[in-house]
Simulated scan of single mutants.
Amino acid sequence: MPQVKGSKQYHMVVVPHRPVRRALIIVLLLVAAGAAVAASYYWGYHQGMTQQADAVAERDRLREEVSVLTRESEELRQQVANLRLGSEVDQQASDEMRKEVIKLEEQIAALEEDITFYRGLMAPGDNNTGLTIGALNVIGTDIPREYEYKLVVQQLATDHQVLSGYLNFNVVGRRGEQTETIPLHELSSQVDNEDIRLRFRYFQNIEGRLTLPEGFEPERIELMAQSTGSDRKTVEKKFGWLVQEL
């Protein structure tokens, strides 16, 4: 066969035609892809069931705590009733008995507050769900201008998922004639930055010690908490500067 000068020549290769082998390879690839999809589905299903079981166990634990607290509250109420009845019979009741009554009533109030707190976590009102700022306590210490703080941030929901977000904690007051706002991380060595990280399912306690600078007179505490994610929520709350003594 004559060749054209300068043109590139290609070698032809003859291969056998195997349609059955090609079809078998395609079937095997489809089976492997189906197995991978099924494995992914069952792995995700197992993970979801595990998380649901953890949430149910945590809910049952909280219900048991509410039941125990309710029983203790009723027992203390009965003790108070018995002591009051004895006091009415004997008008010369001792100071020790009256102090015991006061102590028991304080314990009842604390237990009822805990019961209300746990019940609110498990069955909140329809218009009061999601991220919520709870109680704040500022407690004096033996060291001048040094205080303990205890704050509860909670999630009110009927189906609790892990909530993430951050909290800003600022002390507002006056230094001379000027109003001044000081973030918590400048007052407490236990806080690293302005945004305090939040991550919890039911509630999170934020506590530590803060020291006020000389010349600064506090007036209130301003809090702002924000959750992240698709159901983002921002809540703000202000507390007057009220110190509980030890």
Results as ranks from 00 to 15, higher is better:
187 L>P: 05
91 Q>R: 13
163 L>D: 02
195 D>Y: 11
156 L>V: 06
27 V>F: 13
163 L>I: 06
6 G>A: 08
58 E>M: 13
146 E>G: 01
216 F>L: 03
195 D>A: 11
59 R>V: 06
235 V>K: 04
185 H>M: 09
128 N>L: 12
72 E>C: 00
35 A>C: 09
40 S>A: 08
198 L>Y: 07
159 D>G: 05
29 L>E: 07
160 H>L: 05
93 A>N: 07
225 A>H: 00
227 S>G: 07
199 R>L: 09
198 L>Q: 06
65 E>Y: 06
227 S>V: 03
171 V>H: 01
25 I>A: 14
235 V>C: 01
99 K>S: 12
30 L>F: 11
131 L>R: 00
216 F>C: 02
89 V>C: 00
199 R>T: 13
175 R>D: 15
218 P>W: 06
52 Q>I: 07
25 I>W: 10
226 Q>V: 04
210 L>I: 07
141 T>K: 03
39 A>Y: 04
193 N>M: 12
118 Y>F: 14
103 K>M: 11
36 A>D: 05
38 A>L: 12
162 V>L: 08
148 E>P: 01
167 L>K: 04
94 S>E: 09
64 E>C: 00
103 K>N: 12
173 G>V: 01
77 R>F: 02
202 Y>H: 15
243 V>G: 05
72 E>F: 07
221 I>D: 02
63 R>E: 15
189 S>T: 15
223 L>R: 01
19 P>V: 00
174 R>Q: 14
6 G>T: 03
169 F>P: 01
52 Q>P: 01
244 Q>Y: 13
43 W>D: 03
112 E>G: 01
103 K>R: 14
81 A>P: 01
230 S>V: 13
90 D>L: 08
73 S>V: 03
87 S>L: 09
232 R>M: 09
164 S>D: 12
53 A>E: 11
184 L>M: 13
135 A>G: 09
58 E>I: 00
64 E>Y: 14
170 N>V: 13
106 E>A: 14
41 Y>Q: 11
190 Q>P: 05
87 S>Q: 11
19 P>L: 06
202 Y>E: 02
151 L>Y: 14
135 A>R: 15
59 R>D: 09
73 S>N: 05
139 I>M: 07
189 S>C: 03
238 K>Q: 15
171 V>R: 10
11 H>V: 12
79 Q>W: 08
57 A>N: 15
8 K>G: 02
182 I>H: 09
107 Q>P: 07
14 V>H: 14
241 W>C: 03
113 E>P: 01
1 M>V: 11
109 A>F: 11
202 Y>P: 03
111 L>M: 08
171 V>L: 13
106 E>T: 10
203 F>S: 15
167 L>T: 03
220 R>V: 07
135 A>Y: 12
128 N>Y: 11
56 V>H: 06
218 P>I: 05
163 L>C: 01
1 M>G: 14
150 K>Y: 15
190 Q>I: 13
168 N>H: 08
5 K>Y: 07
23 A>F: 15
184 L>C: 08
181 T>D: 10
138 V>P: 03
163 L>V: 10
115 I>D: 07
134 G>P: 08
33 A>P: 00
88 E>C: 00
71 R>T: 05
40 S>Q: 07
214 E>S: 08
104 L>V: 01
191 V>M: 09
21 R>H: 14
149 Y>Q: 04
61 R>V: 02
210 L>H: 04
